[in-house]
Simulated assay, not measured.
Amino acid sequence: MQHVFVNLISNALKHTKNGTILVKAEKEDNFIKATVKDTGRERSRQGNVFYIYTAC
């Protein structure tokens, strides 16, 4: 999981020269919901990056 977070945050840093990056984690029922948002240039990257884990 550490690798996933490092990649998400590194990507946000790479594409956000000016602006903000928000990293947030919150408990939702029996799960942890993690969000990385940035104001960097838009690119197609939405989706469930954890689908491989939730499918097991």
Rank of each mutant, 00 (worst) to 15 (best):
M1N: 09
M1V: 11
Q2G: 12
Q2K: 11
Q2W: 10
H3N: 15
V4H: 13
V4A: 11
F5R: 08
F5M: 10
V6S: 15
V6M: 15
N7T: 10
N7C: 08
L8P: 12
L8I: 03
L8A: 14
S10K: 10
S10L: 00
S10R: 02
S10N: 13
N11R: 13
N11K: 07
N11Q: 10
N11W: 03
A12R: 04
A12I: 03
A12S: 14
A12F: 07
A12N: 07
L13W: 11
L13D: 12
K14A: 00
K14F: 02
K14I: 02
K14R: 09
H15W: 04
H15E: 11
T16L: 01
K17V: 07
K17C: 08
G19E: 06
G19S: 08
G19H: 04
T20Q: 09
I21G: 03
I21S: 07
I21Q: 12
L22S: 15
L22A: 13
L22H: 15
V23I: 13
V23D: 07
V23M: 00
V23N: 01
V23C: 09
V23Q: 03
K24P: 00
K24A: 10
K24N: 14
A25C: 09
A25Q: 02
A25V: 09
A25R: 08
A25N: 05
E26H: 01
K27V: 13
K27I: 14
E28D: 09
E28A: 00
D29F: 09
D29N: 14
D29H: 05
D29R: 05
D29C: 03
N30I: 05
N30M: 06
F31N: 04
F31C: 04
F31Y: 07
F31G: 03
F31T: 02
I32E: 04
K33I: 08
K33W: 13
K33Q: 03
A34Y: 05
A34H: 01
T35M: 10
T35Y: 01
V36L: 03
V36K: 02
K37R: 08
K37C: 08
K37F: 06
D38G: 05
D38A: 02
D38T: 05
T39R: 03
G40Y: 08
G40K: 09
G40S: 08
R41F: 05
R41C: 02
R41L: 03
E42F: 00
R43I: 10
R43W: 00
R43P: 06
S44N: 07
S44Q: 01
R45I: 14
R45A: 12
Q46A: 14
Q46N: 12
Q46D: 11
Q46F: 06
Q46Y: 03
Q46M: 12
Q46I: 07
G47R: 05
N48Q: 09
V49Q: 13
F50G: 03
F50H: 04
Y51P: 00
I52L: 14
I52T: 12
Y53A: 13
Y53H: 12
Y53I: 07
T54W: 01
T54G: 04
T54Y: 06
A55R: 08
A55K: 08
A55E: 05
C56A: 11
